[in-house]
Design a protein around this nucleic acid. Sequence first.
DNA 1: GGCTTGATACTCGGATAAATAGTGTCCGAGTCCTAGCGG
DNA 2: CCGCTAGGACTCGGACACTATTTATCCGAGTATCAAGCC
Lengths: 158, 158
Amino acid sequence: MKMSVGVEWALHSCLELNWASPQLVPTTRLAALHELGATYLNKQLQALVKAGIVTSTSGPRGGFTLARDPADITVLDVVEAVEGSAHAFRCTEIRQKGPLAASPEACARPCQIASVMYKAEAAWRRELAAVTVAEIAGTVRRDIPGVDTGVHEWLTRA
Amino acid sequence: MKMSVGVEWALHSCLELNWASPQLVPTTRLAALHELGATYLNKQLQALVKAGIVTSTSGPRGGFTLARDPADITVLDVVEAVEGSAHAFRCTEIRQKGPLAASPEACARPCQIASVMYKAEAAWRRELAAVTVAEIAGTVRRDIPGVDTGVHEWLTRA
DNA sequence: GGCTTGATACTCGGATAAATAGTGTCCGAGTCCTAGCGG
DNA sequence: CCGCTAGGACTCGGACACTATTTATCCGAGTATCAAGCC
């Protein structure tokens, strides 16, 4: 039960794209900012593009930028873009197997164990959906004054 | 971000050990009940032993049984026994890397991104810790009357 | 007949392979910019 | 001098290896049971 490091990269990238906005930032520049593998970061950004969180532009002066207002991008959006939206807990319905297999009508109701797990995951998602990229950016900017303009400068310099 | 199927197996096993109590049940029997791989199930049970959730006895008429009252065994206990208690999200502190690395004193405060992720995980754990094996067993017994005695019979027959 | 003793069979436990998912890398398709050429 | 055109360079995007984790399996250590032999 471990989450891909791509999630961390993607979230940081969203913050930085937010500060770089409205400029486009290529993968190379974005990766260099935190010494990340450029090609692998590109993979994560591709996932964000598919999810409609960022937009990409090819060619010289191309790159990525946020596709919508950072106040409309929740952490959950980014996590699901990278990790997929499947449940972490996978119920394989073993109750329907074996000599004492539960009857099909009894299985109309979901497995109690799965219900508990799904409920917990729902709580997790609720927390993630309650925070937006804009909010995180605001907090970070308050903690480290000038980080926004600094990052903007560095990402968009010639 | 997927959870081991061992978690599902372990939780079902806890329910069944609860119903088999105070009889000991060997891995073979427990696995046969749901057509699981006996050796792999044994691995999960070993994890439960290490966590102090079940106790094991070797030799003929040996097997596993719950180590304490099922009302004192939370779902979180079982999940952490199998999956480990490490955070799913791993902050690698990439903010401290690169040309604009955050200063050490700025990193006294935890990374905002990590904070959000950890908070969500805490909510998840809270949900899992709020449900005990005894409660799940009670609900299942209400949904499928007679399941407790049926499982007990089958697991403890000669 | 009861007790000791040895062998036996059954159990868990950790060490050992195969399969799967995550991680990292590479090269090709597309696009824009630039420089040169002609009008 | 201005517009057109061909080349080049830079970007993303998906396809291709490598590593770590999960999944599955096997064999050895330990123990209670059972049976036989002895007192």
